[in-house]
Nucleic acid binder design. Sequence first.
DNA 1: TCTTCTGATGAAAGCGCTTTCAGTCAACGT
DNA 2: ACGTTGACTGAAAGCGCTTTCATCAGAAGA
Lengths: 341, 341
Amino acid sequence: MGTMVSAARVKLSDVARDAGVSAATVSRAIAQPGLLSPETLARVRASAQRLGYLPDGAARALASGRSMTIGAIVPTLDSAIFARALQAMQATLAQAGYLLLVASHEASPAAETQAVRALLGRGVDGLMLVGAERAPETTALLRTSGLPVVLTWCGDGHFTAVTIDNAMAGRLAAQHLICLGHRRIGMIVGHLQFNDRQRARLAGARMALEEAGLSLPDSLVVEQALTLAGGRAGCAMLLDLDDRPTALIGGIDLFAIGCLEEAHARGMAVPDELSVVGIDGLDMSAHVSPGLTTVHVPTGRIGNLAAQTLIAMVARRPVERETLLPVELVVRRSSQTLPPH
Amino acid sequence: MGTMVSAARVKLSDVARDAGVSAATVSRAIAQPGLLSPETLARVRASAQRLGYLPDGAARALASGRSMTIGAIVPTLDSAIFARALQAMQATLAQAGYLLLVASHEASPAAETQAVRALLGRGVDGLMLVGAERAPETTALLRTSGLPVVLTWCGDGHFTAVTIDNAMAGRLAAQHLICLGHRRIGMIVGHLQFNDRQRARLAGARMALEEAGLSLPDSLVVEQALTLAGGRAGCAMLLDLDDRPTALIGGIDLFAIGCLEEAHARGMAVPDELSVVGIDGLDMSAHVSPGLTTVHVPTGRIGNLAAQTLIAMVARRPVERETLLPVELVVRRSSQTLPPH
DNA sequence: TCTTCTGATGAAAGCGCTTTCAGTCAACGT
DNA sequence: ACGTTGACTGAAAGCGCTTTCATCAGAAGA
């Protein structure tokens, strides 16, 4: 044996010869076994097995026009949110024989365009994207490609989408705090530039406050990078205000956890001196101290449904234009009634 | 316009015709622009641009034998560790024009075999795997394929690998606690079945204890699912022992964070009544309360290097057989000297 | 002036598979 | 007994691109 230079890979025609059938028959044995007689099928399978035949995906894709691959483009893989959604997608796709091709754009519309181009070129059968906001060029690319596309978290009313009501999430967080008697509420959000989810959450919170005769002035909103440290920094800024808020909403749970930390570092008791509410419902949030009140988002289901929807679209089965998944307030210890002044 | 049935996609021959050159020339304009005269190149590019030409990846892969795709198979995407490594890989790969195809096996060797088969079939140019332990069948598949393969976290001395010294990580954690005066130390590890990283960490910790004249009996080791809840449950089991340990090591940071939580729930002060050390160095660990002492692992670099190594192997450039990345103890507040008895 | 290069381009043969279109053959109906 | 039907299978034409190999100017050398 030793280091043998990779033996020429077994190909379909080898199997055909070995089994004494035509190439067409072997192909059918793989893709439409029902068309073959049991004996032929068994013979072909035996040969394929014995020779260790593995179909060449590129050739199949070229000949059939389907790559059995779905692409997903997310802001980053390094986030509990997208990691969970992708894991769910991947699991669902794998069951259907699809593979997941991933790309990230790090909040850059141009990078997203590039990623779309790359995935389109690679011949994915469908594409999952996050949010509805993107460079017009990207949208044009998507449209002219005619490829099945599913937007997630936010829809645009045109592409198929699996979404949550981000504005409602913001609203629930705010209403909860309002009900507890808070009147001065601050919010930390991600950079709003290329992030419609954060914009919607902010808008929802603001609207809830206004409906209650209150307001969420820009002075009480701070934009931060989507990290725990960003949340902590945002919290610090808000707490340093002359008329500091009595409650804070994190546009993502990570922000809220950062707030918990900053409050702790300052010796401010949560929830006694500061109430904190997040949005996302990370596993982690149930485990921090105090437990984080948050608006839970069914992240895994978004991934599962996006995958299922894409699979259905590839198969030309009808699908919901937009699936809206419910968000839900989960009250824990980080928020409480505003103590009497 | 309206709903136009997807216009036949622009293909290389269309560009060739438009530019008044042969298909070969267009192909060269894409892959080896240096071979063309500046004028021809410009003309072809202009045509391609105008027609919106996007090369067909499947056809390229079939004709050239390279798919410009790298595969990665991890236990799960839904873990801060693998998510970070994959994000790093993806970023590095994207810069080199490669795309990342991901699969997860959820700690099932059979699922891993299947994933390898799927990725091999899809014609990836290289493959990243986690750990060195796997079904013999998988290894055979990998070997006969002759594909560039990089193992991560643990190597097997045969395949190229980007690793960390897991045993050293366990050892550092244990030695730290021993130095603080702890004599009775417990450890929570992931299921050891198909996880050589956890086995090595356990072995390292055990060895450190034995070298100090102590021991880590099986009664003080509990296997748990790799989640925060698993860590908490493991901690509970260990604390319920008659002769409870004074310090706990988490085989992953998540376990250690679970310990913090369980201790908190029981009203046990950390580190006064219980010292806790983790292994991984999650961002989160710096932010929990008390800050978690942990053995930091350069997760992102593992991903970067795995990608770089794979790219080099595809290009037939020589690479290190095994790159061992350093781990480092980061002392925070969760561990302290054992108080006088 | 006549080779000999060199650089730029084209013609054409696949890459390994799918799929249409025919064709074969046994069973069936009348 | 003979056209029909239906179930299988095979021949062959690509899928869209890459890559030899050949060609053909024009530059350089003799």
